[in-house]
Amino acid sequence: MAMPSEPIFVSVQTHNFCLNEQQQALFKSCNANAEIGAVASFVGLVRAENNIMEAGSAHSGKLRALYIEHYPAMTEPVLRRLCEQVLEKWQLITCRVIHRVGTIPTGEQIVLVMVGAEHRAAAFAACECIMDHLKTSAPFWKKAIFEHDEHWVAAKQTDQAKVEQWSD
């Protein structure tokens, strides 16, 4: 299998992204285009429902946006290492991760994971594996901005349990 010129792309950015453009970029960045038999992608969005907070926590009004903070010196290296590990584990041809930071209104995209592999099983699994690890290891923090107040979102135990399923 010919190796792609830039198999991994990682971006932490304030601006939105276009899924079609990202798929074109995935093919363009990869000179082994013809080897790709499967592309799987995951896009996470800001849900308008306000059940983002733990049950019983008080908040006021509708969810307007999420504010996402990160640790700039650490975030991209963590995401890049994660992509390298998953690329090797699932023998991917290419993968890309985009995560937005700053204030993101409801309905907008937050995160993209897109992978190219020879077959669908590896593409589906790798995509999910990257997301599960991203949620528990990449230094991002979400704050829910409601109409009348705002609250930091607590980490979910279910996310931790999910990532542990991937340990060999």
């Binding site: 640790y71 650490m74 995160v111 949620k135 230094p139 991002f140 923090w141 930091w152």
Partner: peptide, 9 residues
């Protein structure tokens, strides 16, 4: 760096 558990994605 000190921080609470991460909540990205």
């Amino acid at each position: 760096a000190f921080f609470p558990p991460v909540t990205g994605g």
